[in-house]
């Protein structure tokens, strides 16, 4: 599996560390209702098709939002986290 780092280009999966779905980009405000926090912390969709995940490129220190397809395994995009938010 190869992923795209916005700094380094296509790199082997072993250079990356997985964080989770891009739901982590949408943190509720501190006084949001418990349902919003429950949604943020625990509930994930299980898409067949396009999925967005957060990965860390260990060698260069860049957080990346990867777009991939869970059916074909195609990796189509890698965006710096600050640009993805």
């Amino acid at each position: 599996m190869r992923l795209i780092c916005p700094c380094c280009g296509w790199r082997d999966r072993r250079e990356f560390t997985y964080m989770g779905a891009d739901d982590y980009l949408h943190r509720p405000v501190p006084d949001a209702p418990p349902e919003a926090w429950d949604e943020y912390l625990h509930n994930r969709t299980n898409p067949a098709g396009a999925a967005r995940d957060l990965w860390y490129h260990d060698p260069c220190g860049t957080w990346v939002c990867i777009t991939r397809d869970t059916i074909t395994h195609a990796v189509t995009d890698g965006t710096r986290l600050e640009d993805a938010q």
Partner: peptide
């Protein structure tokens, strides 16, 4: 220049 890993070691 490139950053990468050699085995488990950053280079």
């Amino acid at each position: 220049a490139a950053r990468s890993l050699l085995g488990h070691m950053p280079v």
